[in-house]
Design a protein around this nucleic acid. Structure first.
Length: 466
RNA sequence: GGAGCCAUCGCCAAGCGGUAAGGCCGCAGCCUGCAAAGCUGCUAUCCCCGGUUCAAAUCCGGGUGGCUCCUCCA
């Protein structure tokens, strides 16, 4: 298995700390609003990674956190009058449901910041004891970046210039502009306060992941976990800061490999709230089935930017349709085992830093070949059961193709329309039998106007919703 | 101001020094009452200019264009 390490900026052979086992920590969402397509893409990227690692034979332990204490959540509390718990549990619940719709597997460990306070305060205390952190007059505790000689190496930002320092929030008492907050002391009027040995307050953002990783993974003498992942925007400052804290508190590096996924863009620009072009996952799921959305969103290599476009989404659906049409020719059949050649080609592609494009082309080739053989010999049972097993493999590795074809093609069809469709089809079959092609073609046009496409096969007429 | 990523057929998209995968669209054919579906065949020398090499889309230098990070962000 090869993966691209975004710190070393090169593709590397994955050599886990512990043979046969891969520990994975993914930066999850801050739960103050609905998930957008960018969250989906990030989750999808690491879902593919976990699935591939498992199929290649690794035991995978994946953690993905929920940031449920944060300034934006506090802002939401003020705006809505709801409690922190109400807000965060609502958005966590929605997040998980939406990710499920995209067939994204759950992480093995899903820590929440509010449930990891002991780990965080312990790490902050340790950093203070070791002289890596200091407290200012307000009670806030900062990490002293000047004490970490490796600070800046992760993101390659060693000599930051004046212009970039201007952008950092100015706090007079900070020793160094790059120093970041570990603990925000409770100020007058603030209600979201937690107890800590150093007083009431709440944790800074960066400490969360470091503390959770420390709490949940044993690691080795050199690294806490194998792979740390997240969106490309997290490399700096978030991951730089995490790495610094962990290095100073534990004496070893946080992760052996770092992986970052690219952005989802809308009309060539980064999707973000401030630009007013964010696309919520819930809105997309309202219009498109989760499986189609999944197929579309994984279609571009995870490190590249992804330009969201509804036309391209339709193209993705067409491609997925072909898989289901093949599956439709198979059923009902018992599975045998997948073709060795197919499995190898698929795994070879995904083992090469998740080369999804090659993987999808391998699938297309398998579909074409199976269709061709079935055209020649429609009753080839061995081929059918092997093909069915191939599709089962695709579902396991890539997370699509698992539905029953008729369900897939009839998503969003109500019972009434379904009955009407079937009634018209049998009427058309009668007309065809009587060689009344004018009548049968009229019915076909009528169905077409209803959004139903029909196909005559040797086994009768099948139909799909357009 | 600093740091980085990207640029491949009309569109989407692989490629990681050895002579351009795949999908959509289009065209031709097989199949079909006609379609649809399926199958077969056809369609690019890789933004520009230099350089390294027996060999470059792939490496180096210089342009041009797009995006991102340096502030919360997947």
């Amino acid at each position: 298995m090869f993966i691209y390490d975004s710190v070393q900026k090169t593709k590397l052979l994955l050599e886990p700390i512990k043979a046969g086992e891969v520990s994975l920590y993914i930066c999850g969402p801050t739960v103050y609003d609905d998930a957008h397509l960018g969250h989906a893409r990030s989750s999808l990227s690491f879902d593919l990674l976990a699935r591939t690692l498992r199929m290649v034979g690794y035991k995978v332990i994946m953690a993905k956190n929920f940031t449920d204490v944060d300034d934006k959540i506090i802002k939401k509390i003020k705006e809505t009058g709801k409690s922190l718990q109400e807000i965060t549990s609502y958005y966590i619940d929605r997040y998980l449901k939406e990710m499920e719709a995209l067939h994204i597997g759950r992480a093995d460990i899903e820590p929440k910041a509010t449930e990891s306070l002991d780990a965080m305060t312990a790490m902050i205390q340790k950093l203070m004891d070791l002289g890596f952190a200091y407290r200012i007059g307000s009670g806030d505790i900062y990490f002293d970046t000047s004490r970490d000689s490796h600070y800046g190496e992760l993101s390659g930002r060693i000599g930051d210039d004046a212009e970039s320092q201007k952008r950092i929030e100015f706090v007079e008492e900070k020793k160094n502009p790059k120093d970041f907050v570990l603990w925000k002391a409770c100020k007058t009027g603030e209600t979201i306060c937690f107890e800590a040995p150093f007083g009431l307050g709440r944790p800074g953002w960066h400490i969360e992941c470091s503390a959770m990783i420390d709490a949940h993974f044993h690691g080795s003498g050199q690294y806490s976990i194998d792979i740390h992942g997240g969106g490309a925007d997290l490399l700096f400052p978030h991951h730089e800061n995490e790495a610094a804290q962990s290095r100073c508190a534990t004496g070893h590096e946080l992760a052996k490999y770092w992986m970052h996924n690219g952005f989802v863009q809308i009309d060539g620009a980064k999707m973000s709230k401030s630009l007013g072009n964010s696309f919520f996952l819930k809105d997309a799921l309202n219009v498109y089935d989760g499986e189609i959305l999944r197929y579309y969103l994984i279609g571009v290599h995870y490190r590249n930017d992804f330009n969201f476009n509804e036309d391209d989404l339709q193209v993705a659906k067409k491609r997925l349709d072909k898989l289901y049409r093949l599956k439709n020719r198979l059923a009902p059949i018992s599975l045998s085992i997948p073709s060795e050649e197919f499995k190898k080609a698929l795994l070879d592609a995904m083992s090469d830093d998740l080369n999804i494009s090659v993987a999808l082309s391998v699938i297309d080739a398998m579909i074409a070949s199976a269709n061709e053989k079935l055209d020649l010999n429609p009753k080839d049972k061995a081929l059918k059961s092997e093909t069915a097993a191939n599709i089962r493999l695709i579902d396991e590795l890539l997370g699509f193709g698992g539905k029953i074809p008729t369900e897939y093609f009839q998503i969003g069809i109500d019972e009434e329309l379904k009955r009407e469709t079937e009634r018209l089809i049998s009427k058309r079959t009668e007309a065809k039998k009587a060689k009344d092609f004018a009548a049968s073609d009229a019915i076909r046009n009528q169905l077409d106007a209803m959004g139903i496409r029909i196909m005559d096969t040797s086994d009768g007429t099948t139909w799909e919703k357009l």
